[in-house]
């Protein structure tokens, strides 16, 4: 696909739609989680209020350059992940900046924000931030492994590294989706999905009951507002990858909204049912259950 300037405003429009959707959807998921606990839950527009509130704080302090840059890195990870894969398949407007080798780039972007966060959290000097980031990094690293294996498996299956081509191969009925043509790879990837969604049982690094807040302990005001934006955007961007790779992509916005919501809901359901793992338990869980499935997916493809 050749680059045209009109893609830039189109991509910004995608970003706007997805961010607004992400804020409402995250609140809806939080409400569903609250209903499971028999609470009423937050208001549907609460995420926007929190965001405006954090932008409106008058003072903020800094701990150094990386402290400034970490939220920016984090948001770059989320936006980059979203913009380098096609959001709506077959639409010139919402294909964003996807190109031939974007699958590898997406794998990189998933990790990018976490690394930026590690640098910023280390500079903030708070012990909880350091503990949280060491736990979070080890868990995300482990969770990435089955996902990487499954991505390689489907790259071999479809003989391409382009997300657009992978989506194209899955068109024409739901039986063509990767989830039915290569269930092992999807199983491994969905296990890894749980590990990176920052929900129970894999939320040890920031659960308030374990170490208060974790890596962003020192973050406040507009730094936190940036990170909140990413906190809502990034999971949706990640779900878009999953939707494109495994669940046939989306050809229009309503299908996109529904699929993203359902895939996201999967992690929320697991989250309200299962209690939290300690970090060595979660790593062992990935080693024992997810990685072998990923290896089997590669061997059998």
């Amino acid at each position: 696909m050749t680059f045209e300037w009109i893609q830039i405003p189109y991509s910004l429009m995608t970003l706007l739609i997805v961010i607004i959707y992400a804020f409402f959807m995250t609140a809806l998921i939080a409400k569903i989680g609250a209903r499971a606990g028999r609470r009423y839950g937050i208001r549907i527009h609460q995420n926007f209020l929190d965001l405006f509130k954090n932008y409106s704080l008058r003072s903020s302090i800094t701990h150094g350059y990386m402290f400034y840059l970490a939220p920016v890195f984090r948001l770059t990870g989320g936006i980059g992940l979203l913009l380098f894969v096609p959001t709506i398949y077959g639409s010139q407007m919402f294909s964003n900046l996807s190109f031939a080798g974007d699958l590898i780039l997406a794998l990189y972007f998933i990790f990018f924000g976490t690394l930026g966060m590690a640098l910023g959290a280390a500079e903030s000097g708070h012990p909880y931030a350091a503990i949280g980031i060491s736990r979070g990094l080890s868990q995300v690293t482990m969770a990435e492994l089955p996902f990487a294996l499954s991505v390689f498996a489907i790259a071999v299956q479809y003989q391409t590294l382009s997300v657009t081509d992978i989506v194209a191969a899955q068109q024409g009925g739901f039986m063509n989706w990767t989830v039915f043509t290569n269930p092992l790879a999807v199983t491994a990837a969905m296990m890894s999905f749980l590990g990176t969604m920052m929900r129970s049982p894999f939320d040890l690094h920031l659960a308030p009951q374990e170490i208060p807040i974790g890596p962003p302990t020192e973050y406040h005001s507009s730094y936190l507002a940036l990170m909140q934006t990413n906190r809502n955007l990034f999971p949706v961007a990640k779900v878009v990858i999953y939707m494109n790779l495994f669940f046939g992509g989306a050809t229009n916005w309503p299908v996109f909204f529904l699929k993203v919501f359902l895939i996201y809901l999967f992690s929320a359901f697991v989250g309200v049912v299962f209690p939290r793992f300690r970090v060595e338990q979660s790593i062992r869980w990935f080693m024992v259950w997810a990685v072998p499935v990923g290896i089997a997916a590669i061997l059998l493809v």
Binding site: I42, P208, I213, T217, Y219
Partner: peptide, 20 residues
């Protein structure tokens, strides 16, 4: 569940940096 302050936009933060 009995009182559920979250529905009024109230929530708890364990760190003073983020609290109002």
């Amino acid at each position: 569940p009995r009182f559920d302050a979250y529905r009024f936009g109230v929530q708890w933060r364990p760190t003073p940096r983020q609290a109002n």
